[in-house]
């Protein structure tokens, strides 16, 4: 097996006393779409920021984020800046944040290529081709538009074009379809699925939406309270989930529950306070299978070559 394109090892991020990420490890290989799924407070946004080497100011960070061998977190800021754009690019939930409102789309897409020593016309041509590729109707006209003149779906397409412009091997998408309507969401998912074939690198999708994972991902990491509690292929995670949290999460999804009246399942209790996280399993307080041993950190049990779950109760 080749070296994974993205390797995250024991990543810990704390904002003051709040331990947002508590030792997350994951990797992504070229050609793979990896999903990171979890609810609010699980640390997925913190992870997204760390993946592009932009932790929030004041955060305490330890661990490794290796992209193509270089540890992003160990590099000085100028070198990190070079890696962003060249090796890793990001798509945000709100595409407005990715663009400058007072510049035209064309100017910005040309500006994003400032490291290339090429004539402006060539950069413009590349920008135009990329806009056409992501499905913007009339890309020549779009180059002259400001971002606020585009609809939400078109903006997200433009943001994807901007991210792919420098052909970075790693693409990180943070809730890329959450702000969109269902029909636009389907189109963006479709686009990402098409692009994964052409894109030689890895795509990391961070989402709370199991539907997005099911439609798009090859492998999934399930996060809870700053930790990866289960990993596996999308098939394994959906059809044979091992960790009680993964099971509960899937059971709660209204898309999963068979239609009919009656009550929807929920997960009782709430996420632990990350300023004073429990020493053992973070899910124990809400877990139907919890017992006394869960007060100590659970072992990471392996189920087959690809599936791992951190739980005492589900030994293989």
């Amino acid at each position: 097996m080749t070296e994974p394109l993205l390797q995250v090892r024991d990543l810990r991020v704390a904002y003051g006393p709040v331990q947002a990420l508590r030792g997350a490890s994951l990797n992504a290989r070229a050609g793979e779409v990896v999903g990171i799924v979890g609810e609010s407070g699980c640390g997925k946004s913190t992870l997204a920021a760390a993946l592009i080497g932009l932790p929030a100011p004041g955060a305490t960070v330890s661990g490794e984020v290796r992209i193509g061998g270089d540890d992003l977190l160990a590099l000085p800021e100028p070198a990190r800046r070079r890696l962003r754009g060249e090796r890793v690019a990001m798509i945000f939930q709100d595409p407005m944040t990715a663009f400058n409102p007072v510049l035209t789309l064309g100017d910005q897409l040309i500006d994003f290529q400032h490291r290339l020593a090429e004539p402006r016309a060539a950069k413009r041509g590349r920008a135009r081709a990329m806009l056409a590729r992501v499905g913007l109707p009339d890309p020549d006209l779009a180059l002259h538009r400001y971002v606020h003149e585009l609809s939400g779906g078109m903006r997200q397409r433009a943001a994807i074009a901007a991210a792919l412009l420098m052909r970075p091997p790693l693409l990180v998408a943070d809730e890329p379809t959450t702000a969109l309507d269902v029909t636009m969401e389907a189109q963006i998912l479709h686009l990402l699925r098409e692009l994964r074939g052409e894109h030689q690198g890895a795509i990391v999708i961070i989402t709370h939406h199991l539907g997005v994972v099911g439609e798009l991902c090859d492998r999934v990491y399930v996060m809870y309270a700053g930790e990866v509690v289960e990993e596996g292929t999308v098939e394994e995670i959906y059809h044979t989930p091992r960790h009680p949290y993964t099971r509960a999460l899937i059971a709660c999804d209204p898309a999963h529950v068979a239609q009919g009246q009656g009550h929807l399942p929920t997960i009782p209790g709430r996420v632990p306070d990350l300023a004073a996280p429990p020493a053992g399993c973070a899910f124990a307080a809400r877990c139907p299978l919890a017992s006394a041993r869960c007060a100590t950190p659970p072992p990471r049990h392996r189920f087959g070559p690809t599936q791992v779950a951190a739980c005492y109760a589900v030994a293989p």
Binding site: V182, A186, G211, G214, E215, Y238, H239, A255
Partner: peptide, 12 residues
């Protein structure tokens, strides 16, 4: 039909 399906076996 646009609603994303969490089941990878029924991927569209």
């Amino acid at each position: 039909a646009s609603e994303p399906n969490p089941d990878p076996r029924r991927r569209r």
